[in-house]
């Protein structure tokens, strides 16, 4: 008997623009993601990886097909319903970090909890714990400008995991980092997956980085070209 997957995509399409300028970025995606997975999404540039991530993260809606998150139909949800889904179940890490400028690491990490109405003392406690989890204790009061790229991405990861999401989405999280920093970030994501049981979905076009994932989904021209579960995971 099969477990209900965390995410189920069936025949998902996404078309940008309309009329003559219409462009189909996704041409029918079927994908199941189960809790506890660590998936690397690979593929050439323009193959629709980011488009798929944005749909999975409920930041955008598909043009066609069916998307279920924990059994709920996302494609029919309102804007606010999707926002609440993001708030309670999804953490994002972007290539460009997207931290608030001139704001301390601690306050950046606290931000998602402000929208959840968590009390101040609880916010501080959890934000500190999340920063410690990503190895940034002692850096709480530094603003993004005072942190290296790798540290900024750690703050972004802390912000993504501080609310204990079911799913962590990372679109080229190491795209702006050197290989040593990238490796550290990958190890961190791997630990979050194995130790904290967070489902991780990560876009990368570096095969080295994909080594850390348990499963690799390859996109080509808006299709899933292949989907392999790896036997040996890099550690």
């Amino acid at each position: 008997m099969e477990r209900e997957p965390l995410i189920r995509l069936r025949g998902i399409t996404k078309t940008y623009g309309n009329g003559q300028a219409a462009f189909q970025a996704l041409r029918g995606i079927d994908l199941d993601i189960h809790e506890g997975e660590f998936i690397a999404v690979m593929g050439p540039s323009g193959s629709g990886k980011s488009t798929a991530m944005n749909l999975l993260g409920c930041l955008d809606v598909p043009s066609g097909g069916e998307y279920r998150f924990l059994g709920q139909h996302v494609e029919t949800m309102s804007r606010d319903e999707r926002a609440l889904l993001r708030r309670h179940h999804i953490g994002f890490v972007f290539q460009g970090f997207n931290l608030l400028a001139r704001t301390s690491a601690l306050e950046n990490v606290e931000l998602p909890m402000l929208y959840r109405g968590v009390s101040q003392s609880e916010r501080h406690k959890q934000a500190r714990a999340a920063l410690e989890r990503v190895g940034l204790n002692g850096w709480e009061d530094h603003t993004p400008a005072e942190l290296s790229g790798g540290q900024q991405q750690r703050v972004a990861i802390a912000r993504a995991i501080v609310t204990g999401p079911a799913l962590l989405l990372a679109d080229e999280p190491t795209g702006n980092l050197d290989s040593e920093r990238s490796r550290e970030i990958m190890l961190l994501l791997q630990q979050l997956n194995t130790d904290n049981g967070i489902t991780v979905l990560m876009v990368t076009h570096e095969p080295d980085m994909a080594e850390y994932a348990k499963r690799i989904v390859r996109f080509v021209d808006g299709h899933i070209a292949n989907d392999t579960v790896r036997e040996e995971v890099c550690a």
């Binding site: 993260g57 804007r79 993001r86 708030r87 309670h88 994002f92 997207n98 959840r116």
Partner: peptide
Amino acid sequence: TERTREIGTRLAIGALERE
């Protein structure tokens, strides 16, 4: 521009439009 990006970040982490 800066504000728009920040608002994007807030929306992405689950802020409602009215908030």
